[in-house]
């Protein structure tokens, strides 16, 4: 445990310089995808889940970001397993703090509205959909956050963007094909989610699909970052 606190302190010595473009590109993709889900104008999904997801992803990325940038934290002498575990713990702590801050801000806003409304809040401003934490949404979030992290940690400079784009498009195609088959007609995700009568089935199957993606991408993150010997013979470089 002492190791963890020392590592956490070492992070304090660094400045948070990570490639902004690598966060912006996934963020745009994220916004587009979530826009499809929130076709009906249910923007709260983007604001709430999006913020939590981004806080987690960006904190993890900033901890993992070590390409072309040296800090005392990313070369802190600990084993790879410990680094992963500590980064995960710090990211979770960051999210908890972020949630605390968000709750505090929302409380102030709600309190202000409450005062100005003379001690009452219009029930219509908070709907079930606003606070609904479906498995499907969380699974999607896990997948996308994993994808974001992957895009920032892939060791192969040339193909990271290709992998990101490929993963993004594949997920879309799989879902569109799968959901179109269910409804026996071609539909985009947002429409079908709204129109689907059996939302629970939709959620579980969708969740399963995205979680599988998350596990596969997560595996590649761990694999690509682990220090390993790569040998290059006769100009033919292979892992």
């Amino acid at each position: 445990m002492k190791d963890f606190f020392r590592y956490k302190n070492a992070i304090q010595t660094t400045s948070s310089k990570f490639k902004f473009s690598r966060v912006v590109i996934p963020f745009i993709g994220y916004s587009i995808l979530l826009s499809l889900f929130t076709w009906n104008g249910n923007i709260e999904f983007i604001t709430f889940f999006g913020l939590i997801g981004l806080v987690f992803a960006m904190s993890f990325i900033s901890l993992q970001e070590n390409k072309r940038h040296y800090t005392l934290a990313n070369n802190y002498p600990i084993t790879y397993k410990k680094r992963l575990l500590y980064d995960l713990l710090i990211s979770i702590l960051t999210v908890l703090v972020a949630i605390g801050v968000m709750v505090f801000i929302f409380t102030i806003i709600a309190g202000t509205i409450w005062i100005f409304n003379g001690g009452s809040i219009d029930d219509g401003t908070v709907t079930d959909e606003t606070i609904k934490t479906s498995i499907y949404t969380w699974a999607f979030l896990v997948w996308f956050v994993t994808l974001m992290i992957f895009s920032n940690t892939s060791v192969d400079k040339k193909t990271w963007s290709l992998k990101l784009f490929g993963g993004f498009i594949s997920a879309l195609i799989i879902n569109i094909v799968f959901l179109s088959l269910i409804k026996e007609k071609f539909l985009l995700i947002g429409n079908i989610y709204i129109q689907n009568e059996n939302k629970q089935l939709f959620e579980y199957i969708g969740a399963f699909t995205y979680l599988i993606f998350a596990f596969i991408l997560g595996y590649f993150i761990v694999k690509s970052n682990k220090p390993r010997l790569k040998i290059c013979e006769k100009n033919q470089c292979t892992d």
Partner: peptide
């Protein structure tokens, strides 16, 4: 220097 210092991990060899 980046390869030696582990700043760039994308290298082949020892």
């Amino acid at each position: 220097l980046d390869a030696i210092s582990n700043t760039n991990k994308d290298y082949y060899g020892k």
